[in-house]
C-alpha cells in the first residue's frame, strides 16, 4: 500500500510523433524520477508511447464540480458555434 505521504502524479503519454500528450492516469511515487519510471512500467507495457510526461497532481488547478452550471451550461444553447452551417465543397476533402 502506498503510504499517504507518497505524492500523486498525473501521467501523460504521446503515442505518436505529431500527436499531443494525452492524460493516461495517475500513480504514486516519491519523486519525479521514480514517477517517470513507474509511468513507463504501468502505462507503456504494450507499446503505447514514444514520450511520457509526469506532473505532480498538486500542480493541477481544477474547476469546481459545483460550478458546472456557470462554467459549462451557457455554451449549450450556442449551436452556431459548431461549424455545421456550411456546405463544404467536395474539393476540400476530409476536414
Amino acid at each position: 500500500m502506498a503510504e499517504p505521504a507518497t505524492p500523486l502524479w498525473e501521467v501523460f503519454i504521446r503515442s505518436r510523433n505529431g500527436l499531443a500528450h494525452r492524460h493516461a492516469g495517475s500513480l504514486h511515487a516519491p519523486d519525479a524520477t521514480l514517477a517517470l519510471q513507474a509511468a513507463r512500467d504501468l502505462f507503456t507495457r504494450r507499446g503505447e508511447g514514444l514520450s511520457l510526461w509526469v506532473v505532480p497532481s498538486s500542480a493541477i488547478t481544477a474547476s469546481d464540480p459545483a460550478d458546472q452550471g456557470m462554467m459549462f451550461e451557457p455554451t449549450g444553447s450556442k449551436i452556431y458555434r459548431h461549424p455545421t452551417f456550411y456546405e463544404i465543397p467536395d474539393e476540400v476533402g476530409h476536414m
Binding site: M1, A2, L27, H28, A29, A38, D41, L42, R45
Partner: peptide, 11 residues
Amino acid sequence: PLMEEEMALAN
C-alpha cells in the same frame, strides 16, 4: 511494497 513497484518487478 507499492503497486507501482509490483509492476516494475514483474516487468
